[in-house]
Write a protein that binds this DNA or RNA. Structure first.
Lengths: 201, 201
DNA sequence: CCTACCGATCGGTAGG
DNA sequence: CCTACCGATCGGTAGG
């Protein structure tokens, strides 16, 4: 059997290149503002090259959301999971998120914060995936808070749902303010706020 | 002197109609995704009718930001200003914001939350106005917190900047979650969270 | 405020 | 993965 001139490995690599650009561009132009022509140019190919990997703009948007989720889990969720259970995980999540912003993993800040506001009023599978991702993150934070309460690191009358809401708010405030004013100082403020709120150091 | 067939009053009214649609559409499509053709259709006129009032898309975006600011001051800031100074104003601001969301003043939630993330990476006069508005709101919240500390409603070691950051976070979490899941329950959560954080009732 | 138009770009397809 | 093309829509202008 002769090898195909373009192997499946090459195809997968090209797909990965497209998606890396797509996630980055989407944090600047939005999932809707993302243009396949510009994306093809950034990936160094023609429009039809992109269409060879994604049959429609919606397919591309869905794949972009999944890739952004993969990166978020890798850079923000994973460090939290290996931290000491309870308050330690809440602080680690917030710190990892701030580091994610500081090192400009995406040029336009947190992918999901932008996607949530952009797609919130656009019913369809893309919004559903974004909402599912946000819901899963909130559930994870709630579990961290639950453990923190069980370990008496937080007061017994704290409600995990409310703690999760506040932690999410701190994360969103860090993202919005950092993106808008480009001031690393806001990340230090966020670190300080989460520690004070959780009664750490 | 004979009257003009179209008086200045009519012109101002038409401009107001355009801007009302523009602010609403921008919370769905974004300030960049907003199209002058669609806007003209929504306002019941031709594209050139819109261009008669706004010379360019950027002019329209700037006027749209100002109109959104006027509405935000009217619906969210004004109720806070007439509330009891200190913690009362912080709670009133948050309540007015939640009511602003609940009654769907704009179809896509808080105009400035979306505009901040969309324009954050697009340097220019539009981003500058959005950033200035966000900065002014943060400064107002900081002053409310300052008064609350001076009146001993908040602990003496609280930092106004950090309280402002947290209140902003609660507002952003309410907006993002409400837009994404369309659940009025999150507004009750936000009201509960802000009161618990500030030690009220 | 209108009609009529401009070049550029959009998402997508045909055919290879 | 390519070139070449489609109809639709973009921001904007001319001339009234």
């Amino acid at each position: 059997m002769t090898e195909d001139r373009r192997s499946r490995v090459d195809g997968a690599r090209t797909r990965a290149v497209i998606l890396r650009e797509s996630v980055a561009m989407a944090t600047i132009d939005g999932l809707e503002g993302l243009s396949i022509g510009n994306l093809a140019k950034a990936a160094g190919m023609s429009k039809s090259g992109v269409y060879a990997h994604f049959g429609s703009k919606q397919d591309l948007q869905l794949a972009t959301v999944e890739e952004a989720g993969r990166i978020f889990r890798e850079e923000v969720v994973a460090p939290a999971l290996v931290a000491p259970a309870g308050v330690g995980q809440l602080v680690a999540l917030c710190d990892a998120f701030c580091e994610h912003l500081r090192r400009r993993a995406f040029p336009g800040g947190c992918f999901f914060a932008g996607a949530a506001l952009e797609m919130g009023t656009r019913p369809g599978p893309v919004k559903d995936r974004v909402a599912a991702f946000q819901g899963a993150l909130m559930e994870l934070i709630r579990q961290f808070a639950d453990t923190a309460i069980a370990q008496h690191e937080l007061a017994a009358d704290e409600k995990p749902e409310l703690v999760a809401f506040e932690v999410n708010g701190i994360i969103l405030a860090a993202d919005t303010t950092y993106v808008l004013h480009d001031d690393p100082g806001v990340l230090e403020v966020a670190r300080h706020v989460i520690r004070r709120r959780l009664g750490v150091s």
